[in-house]
Structures are given as C-alpha cells and as structure tokens.
Simulated scan of single mutants.
Amino acid sequence: MAMANIIGLLKIRVIKGTNLVIKDSSSSDPYVIITMGSQKLKTRHVKNDCNPEWNDELTLAIYDLDDPINLTVYDKDTFTSDDLMGEAQIDIKPYVECLKARLCDLPDGTVVDKILPSRENSIADVSQIIWKDGKLVQDMILRLKNAATGEVEIQIEWVDVPKS
C-alpha cells in the first residue's frame, strides 16, 4: 500500500480492560492486538491483572473505510501459545460520518452524536462522539465476544494526512 492511497490516520487509545477472563491460575497477563488489513498493532502486556490499564496509543493508516478493524485481547503465556481472551470490532463509520460534517468551533465537550449498543456493533454502553480540544473524539466501551466476560475501553481520533 502506497502512502498516496491513505485516507487518514486513526489514533486508537487503548485505555483499559474491565472484568477480563481469568486465563491463568488466578489472573491473566492481558494485551491487545488491533488489526486492519495487513496492519497489526499491539499494546504492552500487563502482568496479573484482569482490570488492566494500558493507556497505549496505537495509530492505524486508513486506506479503506470498509476494512474491518479488529481488536483482540490475549493472555501472555511464557511456555505455551498465548490464550485468546475475547475480541471485538471497532466500527468507525458513525465517527467518519460526523467528520464529514466538517464541524468547527464547537464548545468543548459538545456531544455531536451518540451510538447505541446493538447486535450489529460491539459497543457495551452508549458511545459518544465529542468535540474536544478542537477535534472529534469517540469513546467506546467494547464488549468482548467469544469470552465469558470482559470489556475494553478505547478512544478513537482521526488525523488528517496532508495531500502531496
């Protein structure tokens, strides 16, 4: 993929996990992998914590808004392959629709849109797209699929790429 085809960058702040599944004897050593197309980004792992705080910022290059963005949580193991702890999809389409409105000069904290949890998305609670510090951000709490319990809180923010 050439940089010329890039639409923009998506900053994904992986904030924290809540109530993640116990995969080792009493806890887990969770980390998050975010994939989109051939891109694969990873947070650091947090030892012995089913409620980890990562606060790691990962940046994806966006080439196609229809490419799914997958978030997968794993438990880091030393001697065996890492255990899957759950997964979710990050839906950026409502966020991108708000970006297209080319909003500017809104009061800080203005809620531009709300996305409700549904069967079609991984959102666990109402997700708000907010005007903050001169840009749009969206906070999401993602419910993990293929897991008994667990949620991951993230925040996304679009970064325009200057056209050459």
Rank of each mutant, 00 (worst) to 15 (best):
M3K: 12
M3D: 13
I6K: 13
L9M: 13
L10I: 07
K11G: 10
I12N: 01
V14H: 01
V14G: 03
K16Q: 11
L20I: 04
V21D: 11
I22K: 13
S27I: 00
D29Y: 06
Y31S: 02
Y31L: 08
V32D: 06
V32Q: 06
M36C: 15
G37K: 00
Q39I: 00
L41Y: 03
K42A: 04
T43Y: 05
V46D: 07
N48D: 15
N51E: 08
P52M: 08
P52V: 08
P52G: 06
N55C: 05
E57M: 13
A61P: 08
D64F: 00
D67R: 05
P68H: 07
P68R: 00
L71N: 00
L71G: 07
T72E: 14
V73K: 07
D75T: 06
S81W: 12
D82G: 09
D82K: 04
D83S: 15
D83P: 06
D83Q: 11
M85E: 07
E87H: 13
A88F: 05
Q89T: 14
Q89N: 14
D91S: 10
D91H: 09
I92D: 03
Y95W: 04
V96P: 08
E97L: 14
C98H: 01
C98T: 10
K100N: 12
L103M: 08
D105L: 10
D108F: 04
D108Y: 09
G109E: 06
T110W: 05
D113C: 09
K114W: 04
K114F: 02
K114M: 12
I115L: 11
I115K: 11
I115W: 01
N121H: 03
S122C: 05
S122Q: 01
A124V: 04
D125W: 10
Q128H: 14
W131P: 03
W131A: 02
K132C: 09
D133M: 09
D133V: 06
K135H: 15
K135A: 14
K135T: 14
M140E: 09
M140F: 08
I141L: 13
L142I: 02
L142F: 02
R143A: 14
K145E: 15
T149W: 04
T149A: 03
G150Q: 05
E151F: 10
Q155H: 07
V161T: 13
K163W: 15
S164H: 13
S164L: 12
